[in-house]
């Protein structure tokens, strides 16, 4: 069953060093529209890695999001590093040779183009010979001995502005074609998935359950509870909590709650309750605290705290 974006569930979620990533823009759209998960865009520009205003793919998922997607059967976890090296190993010899050949051909083509451009630049520089240069040639012939000595020097140096016929031929030889290894561009396909990744046939991996994410026991039930009540949740570290809860897509709504998950018997200082209440009220939200009822597994209790106003 493919979605509007051509995404087939379960889709792969890539695990790199205990962080979960989505690389495909279609999967990102699908997850946002169908699963109410926004994640965090983490990709920046290689040239300006400091800028963090306009981030792009890949999308990093919270552990809770990855866990819920796996639990729903919408996604499965792929160990990215392992799948990559496995994919490289299992690449067919013929494919590898064909790829290397294509790369070689492309670099030769590139080199020839570069050489041709250099040749043209040189030609453009030489053809409209100005009168002053011709005069120079004449002078050199007249000076005789001195001119010959200069010619000799030119041979060694390879190129100067004052060119004689012999120097011209030497000059074209002096530009060695650059060895292919110094060229900076190699054709690399935009997506590496098909090339390098050995993706397991999906149901098999779901059964293995080895890579199932293990989110925190205090936050996951609360995350799931709010998710089931149609809230969008995003990481809340920037706002002094665990999650921000939006009543709809964060592009359309302000968040309603700053959420903190607690264990059923985890003690909380009154001062932290007051601080939480202030934190929420200060930004026109409520501070929510909640967790799973240990006596009734599956039941999640939540409490919303706001300043009393007097």
């Amino acid at each position: 069953m493919a979605s509007q974006w051509g995404v087939v569930e379960p889709f792969p979620i890539y695990l790199v060093k205990s962080r979960y990533f989505l690389y495909d823009a279609n999967v990102v759209s699908h997850v946002r529209a169908s699963h109410r998960m926004c994640g965090c865009l983490t990709g920046t520009l290689p040239q300006i890695p400091q800028q963090n205003v306009f981030l792009g793919l890949p999308l990093e998922l919270m552990t809770e999001e990855a866990a819920l997607l796996v639990e729903k059967g919408a996604g499965y976890i792929v160990n990215d590093i392992q799948a990559h090296s496995q994919g490289l190993k299992s690449m067919l010899e013929a494919d590898k040779a064909a790829y290397l050949e294509a790369r070689e051909a492309e670099s030769i083509r590139e080199m020839q183009a570069l050489q041709k451009a250099a040749e043209e630049r040189r030609k453009a520089f030489r053809t409209p010979k100005p009168a002053s240069l011709k005069d120079n040639d004449g002078e050199e012939e007249e000076t005789g001995e001195e001119g010959k000595i200069r010619d000799g020097e030119e041979d060694k140096v390879g190129a100067t502005v004052f060119e004689t016929d012999t120097a011209k031929t030497k000059l074209s030889n002096a530009v060695d074609p650059a060895p292919p290894s110094t060229l900076r561009y190699y054709p690399v396909p935009a997506t590496s998935e098909a090339l390098y990744h050995a993706l397991p046939t999906s149901p098999g991996l779901l059964e293995a359950r080895v890579l199932e994410p293990a989110p925190s026991e205090t936050s996951y039930p609360l995350y799931k509870h709010l998710h089931e009540h149609n809230y969008f949740l995003s990481p809340g570290l920037r706002f002094g909590c665990q999650f921000m809860a939006y009543p709809g897509d964060p592009l359309r709504f302000h968040s309603h709650f700053v959420v903190t998950g607690l264990g059923w018997d985890e003690e909380i200082e009154m001062r932290d309750v007051v601080g939480g209440g202030r934190l929420g009220t200060g930004v026109k939200k409520a501070w929510m605290v909640g967790g799973e009822n240990k006596d009734k597994p599956g039941e999640v209790r939540t409490f919303c705290v706001e300043w009393g106003g007097f």
């Binding site: 709010l226 009540h229 009543p247 309603h256 709650f257 009154m270 309750v273 007051v274 209440g277 929420g280 009220t281 026109k284 939200k285 409520a286 929510m288 209790r301 939540t302 409490f303 919303c304 705290v305 706001e306 300043w307 009393g308 106003g309 007097f310």
Partner: peptide, 27 residues
């Protein structure tokens, strides 16, 4: 409920605590 927190200097601060998911009021 209204949580009335009493400090040892007898300051009392009040916080509204809702049971369940309740939208924050408009301030």
């Amino acid at each position: 409920i209204l949580l009335a927190v009493v400090s040892d200097d007898s300051t009392v601060v009040h916080y509204v605590v809702h049971d369940g998911i309740v939208k924050p009021r408009q301030n």
